[in-house]
Design a protein around this nucleic acid. Structure first.
Lengths: 136, 136
DNA sequence: AGTGGTTTGGTACTTTAGTATGACCTATTT
DNA sequence: AAATAGGTCATACTAAAGTACCAAACCACT
């Protein structure tokens, strides 16, 4: 938040400087007035694009970026998370085992632990919960 | 696509008119030059915001709106789709049956048909495929 | 060197999921 | 009226998924 305010302040300052600079450049005859206006138009156009992108980005991060902190809070280990990813790819326990080079038994253990940590009864429910928590 | 080009054309035209108008307004003394520049800056700022929003919207609609046509193409019936939604909510066959007021057997039939229509081996894979096709 | 957490893996078991098949009912279409 | 498509349900079966419990190996850390 503080960072945002700082960036905004600097931006406004820069724009005012550009404004004043182009005004004096035109007065002193170094710059064509139409050209100066065109520069200002282009600059403000991109400022609009930039600010809009920034504000939209923030809305997205809330629902699309995975929440690593939540994973830690739930005590989900790296291996368990890899298994969760395998589940989300629609793989069977056997296929996940082949992907991670371990036995199906191991995957079953991980899945079972994962389900209790996510408070889910089935792998499909685990997916739904994981999506809700933005950890997948 | 044609609509987009039309809007862009009209936009550029309007901007050029604004440009010319403000220039003559300044020359004729009806308008202060700094004020005119400020108007242009503001207008271009919002043009930037608008265009950016438009372009980002299109990227989202492609991946977030469900594709009803695809559902028809895959011959997925209303009931089967309801079952698919149940699966995506992490429900068991029995729970889906209770939700839709039919027996578990019926759900099993629907699921089985759904899997073959989606070319999936498991319900989790069906979810992954359904998301890929934007039908869920 | 021992402790704790993770990973691995097995056995034995219960529960869901999924397949195959057949049957019946009901709209809709031909 | 007969065919068609969708929905319903059952039985019987196979295949996954999931639970419980145990045990060994590994790594990081003190």
């Amino acid at each position: 938040m503080k960072k945002t305010i700082l960036i905004f302040g600097l931006l406004i300052l820069a724009l005012l400087l550009l404004f004043q600079f182009s005004k004096y450049a035109v007065i002193s005859g170094d710059l064509d007035s139409e050209f100066a206006i065109a520069i200002i138009a282009v600059v403000f156009f991109f400022v609009g694009v930039y600010l809009n992108k920034k504000s939209l980005q923030k809305q997205q991060t809330a629902s699309e970026v995975i929440n690593h902190q939540k994973i830690k809070d739930l005590d989900i280990s790296k291996r368990e998370y890899e298994v969760l990813v395998g589940i989300s790819e629609g793989l069977s326990n056997k296929e996940i085992g082949e992907k991670l080079f371990v036995s199906e038994s191991t995957i079953k253990t991980h899945v079972s632990n994962l389900l209790s940590k996510l408070n889910a009864k089935r792998r499909t429910q685990a997916l739904q919960i994981a999506k809700d928590l933005n950890i997948i």
